[in-house]
């Protein structure tokens, strides 16, 4: 008989693995990906593919040649970073910019901290913010939705609803004026995704389907997305009620920009979000407040990326002070 194995208890394992969780998130992203292809056409495919492949490539190169250890690029995390980076950029972004973004996301956002599990900031957002600041023009010329036949580089461009709103308020228009004007495409379009914007800002419904799938697979819990939405509704709601002409209603906030994608896929990233339920709710509240503040009072039309990155920095502090409920 072979030698017996000896180990401390427990002797069985649930079978859960990093890959199962990561590929589960990818499956949850498929509806959003399909939607983005339907809305933005070939550009969506090129951008997504470039981002994913360059993330995988850079992770492989850094792990094999710089860190000199076995490459583990198929654990799913690099693919997710690539896809989420793609969802955060316009569909007409040149390939070379995407590659730079991938290099920053993987190299600086993830590997420089120590690889999987060691980064403080969400790598996709690190890449995205880097691109936004380095290539502001390319990163803010959003193609208009022309369905699957939307061109890639030569797509017609226009501003996102948030940008339009900010401009309108700047020029003195009131909120109600903007909502009834022609430049605003309507709530229904925002829900279904017929709006200009980044790939992932498209269909809110597609993202919500992904959310339900992740909850079912127990990949994430409801705490972070729900607390973000609730905070946004409450905070923006208070502002709106105080001055409906100045501040737009909370549902506009929920459906526009990267709110859905950010709350469900980016803020819930394992590595950069708190571990206890109490902590998760505080995290979500912080993101909600910061997003609304940046959107309403700040210079940028969209504040989700910055809000998440700022709260990522607070995660270790939240982990330290928000201990889970003890047994007794």
């Amino acid at each position: 008989m072979n030698k017996l194995f000896i180990s401390p208890s427990p002797h069985i394992h649930s079978g859960d693995s990093i890959e199962k969780n990561m590929y589960g998130v990818l499956i949850a992203l498929i509806p959003a990906l399909l939607c983005s292809i339907l809305l933005f056409g070939i550009g969506a495919i090129i951008v997504s593919l470039t981002a994913v492949l360059s993330c995988l490539f850079f992770e492989y190169m850094i792990q094999t040649f710089l860190l000199k250890k076995r490459a583990s690029i198929f654990d799913g995390s690099a693919i997710i970073t690539g896809l989420l980076l793609a969802f955060n950029v316009p569909s007409n972004l040149p390939v070379w910019i995407i590659i730079i973004g991938a290099l920053v996301a993987i190299g600086i956002g993830k590997m420089s901290f120590g690889g999987l599990g060691c980064n403080i900031f969400n790598p996709a957002l690190v890449g995205r913010v880097f691109l936004l600041i380095s290539f502001p023009v390319q990163m803010t010329t959003w193609p208009l939705v022309e369905g699957i036949s939307t061109a890639y580089i030569d797509a017609q461009t226009g501003a996102t609803p948030l940008a339009l709103l900010k401009e309108a308020l700047h020029t003195g228009q009131s909120v109600s004026d903007f909502l009834t004007s022609e430049t605003f495409i309507g709530y229904r379009s925002m829900l279904l995704g017929n709006i200009g914007g980044s790939l992932g800002e498209g269909s809110a419904i597609a993202i919500l389907i992904g959310f339900c799938y992740m909850l079912f697979r127990k990949i994430i819990t409801w705490h972070i997305p729900v607390s973000i939405f609730a905070t946004v509704i409450v905070f923006a709601g208070i502002l709106h009620l105080s001055n409906p002409d100045q501040f737009v209603d909370p549902f506009f906030h929920l459906l526009s920009g990267g709110m859905m994608l950010g709350a469900i896929f980016m803020a819930t990233d394992y590595v950069t979000s708190p571990m206890s339920q109490k902590g998760m709710i505080i995290f979500g509240v912080g993101i909600g407040i910061l997003t609304v503040v940046i959107r309403v009072f700040g210079a940028y039309p969209e504040g989700m990326s910055f809000a998440i990155l700022i709260m990522n920095a607070f995660t270790p502090l939240i982990n330290r002070y928000c201990k889970p409920t003890r047994f007794a």
């Binding site: 859960d16 990093i18 969780n21 690889g115 999987l116 599990g117 394992y270 590595v271 206890s276 339920q277």
Partner: peptide, 12 residues
């Protein structure tokens, strides 16, 4: 054993 991915499942 791999790196802790800070998923928080052990806490839950």
């Amino acid at each position: 054993a791999r790196n802790c991915i800070r998923c928080g499942k052990c806490v839950s």
